[in-house]
């Protein structure tokens, strides 16, 4: 019964946004609820990502940021809700999506080299049995160059620093050649040089008309890096351009007592 109810809510909220806008949006989410056990991690969330812009998903720890992204990508199954990618279902649009998981989500001791990880971004293109040709390798190397990792192609991935591993993941996403890039905490625990390299790649993607959505944890850089924010704390708190949605009220609502008022003041003014 629960499920039916939330589904109905999701459908109601669909009516609020004009259909045309939904069809254009690289990622539109309606009435999404995801639960690990009893307590929902994401509850009845609507989200409409603006095309050709950079959007940050922010919120306190455990607010459902990563879960929202994973549900949008079909990695975790939602209890209810609807996700459209450029107006169509996820299954139809997989080729237009690139994903960068959290660095800590994989085992970096896995026996593989840097270039092999980037080649994984081409697996959709290659299919089950397609042969890896020189052109594929050249493309993978080019993606590594773009993140400043060209010299590391034949290294075992376990030998890289955290920042270097993150750049390899970004290179793999570039190899996917997508229109929508979804990144889960790409700046977590990386060095300053890596952060700079990643943001410059993301900005070049935006210049090329791509859409970038980033789960982000550093409130201090939100205004500098992003066009839009999506604040979440299990439910949607605010969504819109940084100047409108990233304010004292919305931060207070999302983080509650977890941020000192003085911190929020400073961020909102920045």
């Amino acid at each position: 019964m629960e499920i039916v109810k939330t589904q109905a809510q999701g459908d109601l909220s669909t009516d609020k946004a004009p259909e045309a806008k939904l069809a254009q949006s690289p990622l539109a989410i309606r009435g999404l609820t995801v639960s690990y056990g009893e307590k929902p991690a994401v509850f009845s969330v609507d989200m409409t990502v603006e095309p050709g812009q950079m959007t940050a998903i922010i919120g306190p720890n455990g607010a459902g940021k990563s879960t929202l992204l994973k549900a949008a990508l079909g990695i975790v199954a939602p209890v209810s809700g609807r996700v459209t990618i450029f107006g169509r279902s996820l299954a139809e649009q997989r080729a237009r999506i690139a994903y960068v998981p959290q660095r800590a989500s994989v085992d970096w001791d896995f026996p593989t080299r840097v270039i092999d990880v980037v080649l994984m971004g081409l697996y959709r293109e290659l299919g089950l049995l397609g042969w890896i040709k020189g052109a594929h390798r050249a493309k993978a190397l080019d993606c590594l160059e773009r993140v400043g990792m060209g010299d590391f192609a034949t290294r075992q991935i376990g030998q890289l620093s955290g920042g270097q591993q993150q750049r390899v993941f970004l290179a793999r996403a570039l190899a996917q050649g997508a229109d929508l890039y979804l990144l889960d905490e790409p700046f977590a625990g990386v060095d300053a040089a890596t952060e700079k390299a990643i943001i410059s790649v993301l900005k070049s993607l935006r210049e090329a008309g791509k859409t970038v959505v980033v789960v982000h944890h550093d409130l201090a850089t939100v205004a500098e890096y992003f066009d839009n924010v999506f604040l979440i704390n299990t439910r949607r708190v605010a969504e819109g351009p940084v100047s409108e949605a990233f304010t004292e009220e919305t931060l207070q609502a999302a983080y509650g007592g977890r941020l000192a008022t003085s911190q929020i003041d400073k961020l909102a003014k920045a």
Binding site: R94, T112, R124, L129
Partner: peptide, 21 residues
């Protein structure tokens, strides 16, 4: 042999493998 590529990627990075379908 048949599932080589799928096995490799889903063993290394299950989430990423799922986004590829």
């Amino acid at each position: 042999a048949l599932f080589w590529r799928a096995l490799k990627i889903s063993t290394f990075d299950e989430g990423f493998a799922r986004t590829m379908g």
